[in-house]
Design a protein around this nucleic acid. Structure first.
Lengths: 237, 237
DNA sequence: CTATTGACGATTGTCGACTATCTTTCTATC
DNA sequence: GATAGAAAGATAGTCGACAATCGTCAATAG
């Protein structure tokens, strides 16, 4: 990790690099939910001091990928239906706001970009390219959020999406046939591009509500009410 | 700072205590927006090491009260109309979700509590007690969010509210006559308690939209469109 | 046999010293 | 006098050592 002045200032910081490295291992399933993280081990593996690892773990904790039990341990965040439920509902609220702002304020150039991104999604879906379609799906939502021009929203959304992908891979989530997604996304795209604020908000917010129900059902879990109760009891931290 | 086993584990940690202390000074206007924060100074004032202060500042940075310029400085977050705009819009999205979840899932006991909290607000407002009314206002919204049983939502909302209060005190925000707030809050309370999901969502989400317009107008600033453009240019960090 | 207490080992929490980077100031050159 | 480069000062970034805390397990009392 020598001094590379070509990198942005942020990326030169060792704790950021360490966080990136650990984050990568978590989202790529090398470290599964509940996996214990020892500061000393990570420090020797990444060849930095324990203090630097600590800083990295705190960042990841704020991103929701890692949990800490004070004085005791760090571990990869657990994956569960209730966690996924939280993420999907929150995502809906954020994307609803983003879509309404995008529909109201985005520039013509931005609207054109969104149309193109949708075209990519449609092409990938029709070609049955699941991987590409899933990526295009995320890209479309990310584009709308970026169009909102809302810095906090963009940052928070990025974090939520990261957690969504993490949870998805561990909950046994099976994506729908990409073709089924086209209509929803077309309607959303048209609402945003056409400046229909109310409709854009509504479509984006409820975009995944079917997904949530499907998720809860597929896992033979009690409906959301029970999930909620379970949350309330949540351990003190 | 001796060993006090009476405190929760969290609160015994020096970096948390330091963060609490600094946070207090920021929200109480002892440290204004833009105020420079020197690690060494804070360390000697609070009688902890620089590393501990560093950890505290990172926490506050995640809460949005402090900003960092890598390798250079820490400072109290700036207050501006665009920042306030971001916070109000985000708050609306979060409270909209919270209200819909509360309306759908809250227990009868919780609904009863909400009714009581609204009664407190109404009493304070009618008695022209501005301070008490403002507190009751926040308390009512916080209660609804708590009723959602959504852990991430509760945490994020708490952070947003903290920032809202911080911005409010520095933007020259003049609260409305408390009496004018009663009707809105009554409608919201009734929708949540009555289980009208859609209406609760709608009312909570747009609750402050008038506030946003008033804020932008009162500061003789360009309307939200211009505010948004300003955001997009935002400095790279 | 069970429950309580205490010592031990493992791990996180805190500190002070050292290093890297940025900003400012000074100086030399045109 | 203006400008570019170098040196100096200030400040954040990183490290290794030491302290505090927690969980475990064995010893002991009932």
């Amino acid at each position: 990790m020598s001094t590379l002045t070509s990198l942005k200032t942020q990326e030169r910081l060792l704790d950021r690099q360490a966080a990136n490295s650990i984050r990568e291992q978590i989202v790529n399933r090398i470290m599964p939910p509940g996996h214990r993280l020892l500061e000393a081990v990570l420090a020797s593996e990444l060849e930095v001091s324990r203090g630097t690892i600590r800083s990295a773990l705190m960042q990841l904790s704020n991103e929701g990928l890692v949990r800490q039990v004070a004085f005791t341990k760090w571990e990869v965040a657990p994956a569960s239906v209730s966690e996924a439920w939280e993420l999907y509902t929150l995502r809906g609220a954020l994307e609803g706001l983003a879509a309404s702002l995008a529909a109201e304020y985005a520039s013509p150039a931005e609207r054109k970009v969104l149309t193109q991104v949708f075209a990519e999604l449609e092409a990938a879906a029709k070609a049955e390219q699941r991987e590409a379609a899933a990526d295009a799906d995320f890209k479309l939502h990310k584009t709308i959020v970026a169009m909102s021009g809302h810095k906090r929203l963009i940052r928070d959304h990025e974090r939520i999406i990261l957690q969504v992908r993490f949870q998805m891979t561990h909950i046994g989530f099976v994506p729908r046939d990409p073709k089924d997604l086209i209509d929803d996304h077309r309607a959303l795209t048209e609402a945003v591009v056409g400046g229909d604020i109310e409709r854009a908000e509504q479509l984006a917010r409820t975009h995944n509500s079917a997904e949530i129900r499907r998720l809860l059902a597929a896992n033979a879990r009690p409906p959301s009410e029970a999930v909620r109760r379970q949350n309330k009891k949540g351990e003190r931290e």
